[in-house]
């Protein structure tokens, strides 16, 4: 019985536990090969990873709606968020709140448009959000030269750079955000509805879940988070530039896959996403340390995603087969 429980636990959490162990191993290896095992190197990686984690959490929400949904407009929204926040602030602290409000408003609009295309026009999420991404990118390009986007308001800079006892507060913010999303998913009506519809849309509908409302809200949240991530990223890299979100396209998907979120929907893991993004960046920096070029880094990233998938599938695959068998018998 205990064995069964452990097995069930592992099949649910296996991939991010592996990633966690992997992270520790990488950290130690990095320490051994470089400057010694210091907390500092771990924190530095966690710092870089925390920006990806925000995008990852946004992606996770959309993926959890199920039926292969992916939000491809996240990179565009990151760039837009960066431009709008930098542009509106123009270096002034007083304008931060209006700027963030504007970013949120834009996120709401983008999310509403995305979800309407998916729900009411029946366009597959991948296509709808891809088209939306193009549109946002163009919009950003149009405002490209109208603002000064290189002066960062000091408060925003402080949020991104301040360290308390050696730990950047942004890490704390991201952990709180993950806690918040974990809370949303596990202990609110919204979360239960979202996880239910991701597992089985028809069953959710028959169980009185307000599917449309939940789906719209999910896309809105994702876009808003992506926009805010953009504002923070631009503060870190001293300003907004075109294409700054592009890296987050595939990486946001990669980190949630590593984190144990199901791509088919219905299971999300906010902390797994944090671990996934940390693992991704530890992998990258340890490879940098070993002198691997960007190409090798990418290859290793891809191989990791597939390997984790196959490791996770060995358990689930059998289960799924068994279930199918049973289902077939019962239909008969």
């Amino acid at each position: 019985m205990k064995n069964m429980k452990a097995k069930a636990f592992f099949s649910r959490n296996g991939s991010w536990i592996l990633a966690m162990l992997g992270s520790i191993v990488l950290w130690i290896l990095m320490g051994l090969s470089g400057n010694g095992i210091t907390i500092r190197s771990l924190i530095d990686n966690a710092y870089t990873a925390s920006f990806l984690a925000i995008a990852g959490l946004a992606q996770m929400l959309v993926v959890t709606t199920g039926r292969g949904a992916i939000d491809l407009s996240i990179p565009g929204m990151i760039t837009l968020g960066a431009y709008v926040s930098m542009g509106v602030c123009n270096g002034s602290n007083a304008m931060i709140i209006p700027a963030i409000l504007l970013v949120i408003l834009l996120g709401v609009i983008v999310g509403l448009l995305n979800s309407s295309m998916v729900i009411f026009l029946g366009i597959p999420a991948i296509i709808a959000t891809m088209a939306m991404n193009y549109i946002i990118v163009t919009g950003t390009m149009l405002i490209n030269n109208t603002f000064n986007v290189f002066t960062i308001p000091s408060i925003l800079k402080a949020i991104v750079q301040t360290r308390v006892m050696g730990i950047p507060i942004i890490i704390g913010i991201v952990v709180i955000l993950a806690l918040f999303i974990h809370f949303l998913l596990s202990s609110t009506s919204y979360g239960k509805s979202l996880l239910a519809m991701g597992q089985n849309l028809e069953a959710a509908r028959l169980a009185s879940v307000r599917v449309v409302r939940v789906e719209v809200l999910t896309y809105v949240l994702a876009s808003v988070f992506a926009g805010i991530a953009g504002a923070l990223i631009s503060a870190r890299v001293t300003g907004a530039y075109l294409g700054m979100g592009d890296n987050y396209q595939m990486e946001s998907i990669a980190c949630i896959v590593i984190g144990g979120t199901l791509m088919s929907g219905g299971r999300a893991n906010a902390f797994g996403t944090l671990v996934g993004s940390l693992f991704l960046y530890l992998t990258i920096s340890s490879m940098q340390l070993m002198g691997a070029d960007a190409g090798i880094q990418s290859v290793v990233k891809g191989a990791l995603i597939i390997a984790l998938l196959l490791v996770g599938a060995s358990e689930n695959g059998e289960q799924r087969d068994g279930r199918r068998h049973k289902a077939g018998a019962e239909q008969a």
Binding site: M250, A294, I296, V300, K301, A303, L309
Partner: peptide, 9 residues
Amino acid sequence: LGMSFIWYG
């Protein structure tokens, strides 16, 4: 998706 990282890398 994983393979796309590999191809690109």
